[in-house]
């Protein structure tokens, strides 16, 4: 196995261009598990941990640019107030040790439908910045996930960062699993209210081949919410929203849960998170 440890981003991109099959590694919380269990034997590993800029975040034109190597623990500590949905999801990732090492970049790279970061990124309308020696491009989160553990990146590209707006309204994240800590979600749901655009963002996890938005549910609820004189939401509206979220999913039966249970649980989580977020919006006006 070839092992590269580039010191700079251009050097990393050059290596990736030369070895398109290379597996990048940052926190190693996914890649090392696969190596240890011999699921995967990459010919080339690119260790990105020496590249300082991947561990930085800053704002550009009012949006955050968060380096792909920023670990979950720092997202919780440093960005929790302004990215509440992502921070809530980050708190449910693994254990303290995993949160110290694991990164959103790793979640994006693996593109597992169960990745905890995906629903809040979808709900917030984040964009993924990918780069290669050919240049840099931004991919909207809802175009990033293309299949089970597949994403829209070209073989020579690496994930540089994600771009995400600070929350303009309440955000929620819910996840169901057998255990609280250290558990892979049976299914998960992220929700973001966007008062500035009078829209609602959603993200569904572990209930389809890819993380995905519930577009019908978003359209439905946008038409139901009165942002200027917000009244409590009728149960029937919340239920309909839940149903539409559930319908957006195409889950399978597997060891962690049946498709029927996943769809049902999604509808409950969607209904509840909408209620919580809307109540928060009403309180804070």
């Amino acid at each position: 196995m070839e092992f590269h440890k580039p010191r700079t981003w251009p050097e990393a991109l050059a290596i990736k261009a030369e070895h398109p099959d290379a597996t990048p590694i940052a926190g190693g919380t996914d890649v090392m598990v696969e190596l240890n269990f011999d699921v995967h034997r990459p010919d080339v590993l690119i260790d990105l941990t020496e590249i300082a800029e991947l561990r930085e975040w800053f704002t550009v034109d009012g949006r955050y640019r968060v380096g792909s190597g920023v670990p979950y623990a720092r997202i919780i500590d440093e960005l929790g107030a302004t990215l509440p949905g992502l921070a809530m999801a980050s708190r449910t990732v693994g254990s303290p040790q995993i949160r110290n090492r694991g990164t959103v970049g790793g979640n994006l790279g693996a593109a597992s439908p169960a990745g905890d970061a995906h629903p809040p990124l979808l709900a917030a309308g984040a964009e993924i910045e990918v780069a290669s020696v050919r240049g840099t491009r931004l991919i909207p989160a809802d175009e990033f996930y293309t299949g089970v553990k597949r994403n829209a990146m070209e073989p020579d590209e690496l994930i540089a960062a994600f771009h995400i707006s600070p929350a303009d309204g309440p955000q929620q994240f819910a996840k169901i699993g057998t255990r609280n800590a250290m558990v892979i979600a049976v299914c998960s749901f992220g929700l973001a209210l966007h008062p500035s655009t009078r829209t609602v963002g959603t993200g569904v996890g572990s209930a389809a081949p890819t993380p995905r938005r519930a577009a019908d549910a978003e359209a439905f609820i946008a038409g139901e919410l009165d942002w200027d004189s917000p009244l409590p939401l009728r149960d029937s509206v919340k239920r309909r929203f839940g149903e539409l979220v559930a319908q957006s999913a195409s889950p399978i039966d597997d060891v962690r849960g049946t498709a029927g249970y996943r769809q049902h649980a999604l509808s409950v989580m969607a209904r509840r998170t909408l209620g919580w977020a809307w109540d928060e919006y009403r309180r804070n006006r």
Binding site: S95, T178, R179, N180, A181, M182, V183
Partner: peptide, 8 residues
């Protein structure tokens, strides 16, 4: 194999 954690 889900052994219990303090969080549970």
């Amino acid at each position: 194999y889900l052994v219990p954690s303090a969080a549970d």
